[in-house]
Design a protein around this nucleic acid. Structure first.
Lengths: 163, 163
DNA sequence: ACTATAAGTTCGATAATAAGACTTATCATA
DNA sequence: TATGATAAGTCTTATTATCGAACTTATAGT
């Protein structure tokens, strides 16, 4: 059966995962942020099957995260670029990178970091702050319902043990 | 052929995606943060196939993001709980939620937000700061190589157009 | 015209997911 | 202690996605 779509689920995480929750989309976006625009360059850098790449790029364009155009200098080339919605995923990639760098490299140390272009120093660890500017930890976080929440969702949040 | 493993790729993002880049793992972790611990409760809340859930939970335990134990009150129940590595993914989930809430709800508005437990107000938008505390935008970000970077990776970073 | 390049598409094999029935062990209760 | 219910997970079959490589089409360079 086809992969279940989470796009209809009323949850921002679920809808994001519906777009990003496969083995390739996130690293495609990473390369796009790096400046990769050509189909064959994605293939070369990622060693992704060409049909899979074509499917993922189509999905990203359909979802409005990327746009596709023709290279005006070379009519053979397609140019894939990030739309604003796709660019803003850089914060998600940073969160993934900081987590991966911390937990997925036993001794060798992480090979790459996002850094301040000026100082060349790694950016600070992401901090979550309240609207008053206080740094928050997980045990200070809860989930609240927005205007469009269903009664069932509100009921769940009222009985939450954590987060 | 089996899904290609990105676990060997020397990149924190790739290694994180290798664990999280499927349609279910992220929302499983979301529910675990909500306090869900029982197999059947994951099935009920997510409507995930039982065999898929079993596979994902096994993978999460193997990767050290969750632990599995027996309920001392009820010997039928397994208890799945997040290890520290899994708990720290809450920042990634927040980044996904903030992005999804912004881009995946046309008019209805987002149904749920992470909030400060004290004030019940949504947490502030994630900000990326330099080591000096300045807020950074995407165009101020570059990628730098760490100690374990390969020469090829360093070469790539030297020629980066952006990020 | 000829060759190379870029972007995809097509094909067959393998792996992952979906849906539901089924098994095993434990708990609650009569 | 026998009986039924519950929880966790397995098994089976059908469908879908991914992999890897070959192939097609259009454009560029010579």
């Amino acid at each position: 059966m086809r992969k279940k779509s989470l796009q209809a689920v009323p949850c921002g995480i679920a809808r994001a995962v519906d777009l990003l929750g496969d083995p390739w989309t996130v690293v495609i976006i990473r390369e796009a942020l790096f400046g990769i625009t050509a189909f064959d360059d994605f293939v070369k850098v990622l060693t992704i099957p060409r049909n899979t790449l074509a499917a993922r790029l189509d999905a990203l364009v359909s979802a409005g995260l990327m746009r596709k155009s023709r290279d005006t200098q070379d009519g053979r080339r397609s140019v894939y670029e990030l739309e604003p919605a796709g660019q803003e995923l850089w914060v998600v990639l940073l969160a993934l990178q900081q987590w991966g760098n911390k937990w997925c490299f036993d001794d060798e140390g992480a090979p790459s970091f996002m850094a301040d272009h000026g100082s060349k120093r790694p950016v600070g660890e992401l901090q979550v702050r309240s609207s008053d500017g206080d740094v928050l930890t997980l045990d200070q976080i809860t989930m609240i319902a927005g205007p469009s929440a269903t009664p069932e969702l509100e009921a769940r949040f009222r009985t939450l043990k954590k987060v």
